[in-house]
Amino acid sequence: MKPVVSAMQAWSCTVISAFAIIILSVIGGLFRTKHHSLTGHADDPADGPAVAGTVFTAVFVYIGFLVFCGLQGMLHVRENRRGAIAL
């Protein structure tokens, strides 16, 4: 199987996705527990659990990116071990 994206794009996407999963999971957890720093002001969303559901949907999208880009990176590693010539 051939990689779809370049090695640099694959590994960059993997690292960015990992950080996004961590950061968004913390933000989603804070919204779920209705933490006062995120839901305490009059202009902030009143329904914290609904916002948390949306944030966790984004986490699942980033998990998909992490899996896809990680597999693309591993394809590049496997291709380089076989002695393929990179153009």
Rank of each mutant, 00 (worst) to 15 (best):
Q9E: 12
R81Q: 09
P3E: 15
K34M: 09
V5F: 10
L66S: 02
L24R: 01
V5S: 03
A42T: 04
C13S: 13
A7W: 05
A18G: 04
S25R: 00
G70T: 02
V67P: 02
L66D: 00
G70W: 09
D44H: 13
V59T: 02
R32P: 00
L38R: 00
W11N: 02
T57V: 15
G73P: 09
K34L: 11
A7V: 14
N80C: 08
L75H: 03
A46E: 14
V51I: 15
S6V: 07
I27K: 01
M1V: 08
S25T: 10
E79K: 11
V61D: 07
R81N: 15
F65Y: 10
I21P: 00
G53N: 13
H76V: 05
M8V: 13
A50Y: 02
T14N: 11
V61P: 06
A58I: 12
G70F: 08
Q72P: 04
T54Y: 07
V5W: 10
H76K: 10
H35Y: 10
C69Q: 10
V77M: 04
Y62E: 12
Y62M: 13
A52W: 01
T57F: 14
L38K: 06
L66H: 08
A7E: 12
A18T: 06
C69F: 12
S25C: 00
F68L: 11
C13Q: 14
D44C: 14
C13H: 06
D44M: 14
L66N: 06
A50R: 03
V61Q: 13
G73R: 06
S17L: 04
C69D: 10
H41D: 11
V67N: 08
I63T: 10
F65W: 08
R81M: 12
L66P: 03
A52E: 12
H36I: 03
L66G: 09
T39I: 12
G73N: 05
F19S: 03
C13I: 09
D44I: 01
E79P: 00
V59N: 10
G53A: 09
L24Q: 01
C13M: 15
R81C: 06
T57Y: 12
D47M: 08
V15T: 11
S37V: 09
I16N: 11
W11I: 14
I21W: 10
S12T: 02
A46K: 11
P3F: 14
S6G: 13
Q72C: 09
W11T: 14
L38D: 01
P49G: 05
S37L: 13
M74S: 05
G70R: 07
V26K: 01
V67I: 15
H76D: 12
S17A: 11
L71N: 14
F60M: 06
G64C: 12
G83N: 07
K34C: 15
F19E: 05
I22Q: 05
H41I: 12
V59S: 13
D44P: 01
V59A: 10
G70C: 04
V26Q: 04
C69M: 14
F31M: 15
I21G: 07
H41Q: 11
L75F: 03
F68T: 06
T33C: 04
A42D: 15
T33P: 03
A52Q: 03
W11E: 05
G83D: 07
S12H: 05
V5A: 01
W11R: 01
R32H: 13
T39S: 13
T14H: 07
V5P: 00
A10P: 04
G28I: 06
G29C: 09
F60H: 03
F60E: 03
I21F: 01
T33H: 07
A46T: 05
L75W: 02
S25W: 00
V51M: 11
